[in-house]
């Protein structure tokens, strides 16, 4: 229940203090700009500069319609990762610092928040890199399992069931594992920004929070992340991509919006959770 209270508080903070969401809008802008650049690779003038890169890495076919749109999700995934690591490490802490100011009933100052975010940037970058590394390692492992499952030849019985679960459920298993991994790391970022300073202290505080409020932290990340499910379902529906390949771009843009929304809710909720026990103490 506390997770829902935190989410309501986070939503209330965003609604009452529009400036808190500004860094997140900027992050979304960067995601969408990256998507736009990637979409326009086969068009002039980008084709001249970025076309040869795609040609060399993936083949000439992927500079042509509709194959380019098949490659776009993969390219956007890399771009999103880079934007999240290098710009998210700055913009998310700005948002967290703003929430801290609001929470302590101080006037929300973007300048001060930015200053704090810059100071926390190396630690946050390291934490996010660590989290992303674990996520990528998990994704690689899951890929191997999916490939192994694809080779199961049973037409019925438990192995067939296992194959179906692995092949059709892979994106959902991936999402669930992402949530679990995030549960173990996410609170460290608000901890760094709101005062822990050093990574070791932030991680200690994070583990204490996770131990104390395991269900709350998991719920806080899990519930907003459910918004990814309809997108996965739409992506899996071939009708869209077969009849109108451009849907891929719309789904990717929607995915970026959902990502930023989820990040906003999660980090706002976790910041409030980080600050609450301090107050109590």
């Amino acid at each position: 229940m506390k997770a829902f209270w935190l989410m309501r508080s986070a939503a209330g903070t965003f609604a009452d203090n529009k400036i808190v969401a500004a860094p997140l809008y900027l992050l979304l802008f960067l995601y969408l700009a990256a998507l736009e650049v990637l979409y326009f690779i086969p068009f002039a003038p980008l084709r001249k500069h970025l076309g040869p890169v795609v040609q060399r890495l993936f083949g000439d076919l992927f500079l042509h319609y509709p194959h380019h749109l098949l490659l776009l999700p993969k390219l956007f995934q890399y771009a999103q990762l880079a934007v999240y690591l290098f710009f998210g490490s700055l913009l998310i802490p700005v948002s967290i610092a703003l929430i801290d100011q609001v929470y302590h009933q101080r006037p929300a100052s973007l300048r001060k928040a930015f200053g704090r975010a810059v100071r926390a940037y190396p630690q946050v970058l390291l934490l996010l890199t660590l989290m992303m590394t674990v996520m990528l390692w998990k994704m690689g492992l899951l890929d191997l399992l999916v490939q192994r499952a694809a080779r199961i030849r049973s037409a019925a019985g438990p192995f067939k069931l296992l194959k179906d679960v692995m092949l059709f459920g892979a994106p959902y298993i991936n999402l669930l594992l992402d949530i679990v991994i995030q549960t173990f790391f996410a609170a460290a970022i608000p901890a760094v920004v709101t005062g822990a300073g050093r990574i070791a202290d932030a991680l200690r505080m994070n583990f204490r929070l996770v131990k104390q409020y395991r269900a709350t932290v998991f719920g806080l990340i899990f519930v907003p992340s459910l918004l990814h499910v309809p997108l996965h379902l739409l992506r899996a529906t071939a009708v869209f991509t077969d009849t109108l390949p451009e849907t891929t771009v719309i789904l990717l843009a929607a995915g970026a919006c959902v990502n930023v929304f989820v990040e906003g809710m999660v980090y706002a909720g976790l910041t409030i959770l980080c600050l609450t026990p301090k107050e109590g103490a």
């Binding site: 529009k18 400036i19 500004a22 809008y25 900027l26 802008f29 969408l32 700009a33 736009e36 326009f40 086969p42 068009f43 002039a44 042509h64 319609y65 380019h68 973007l110």
Partner: peptide
């Protein structure tokens, strides 16, 4: 900040529109 964001998003939309318009007779389309 609000104005900056509106400006950035407008630029994004305009860039997309310009990209499509300049390539309206291009190979991709």
């Amino acid at each position: 900040m609000k104005k900056t964001l509106i400006f950035l998003y407008t630029c994004l939309v305009l860039a997309a529109a310009a990209g499509l318009w300049f390539n309206r007779n291009g190979t991709y389309l």
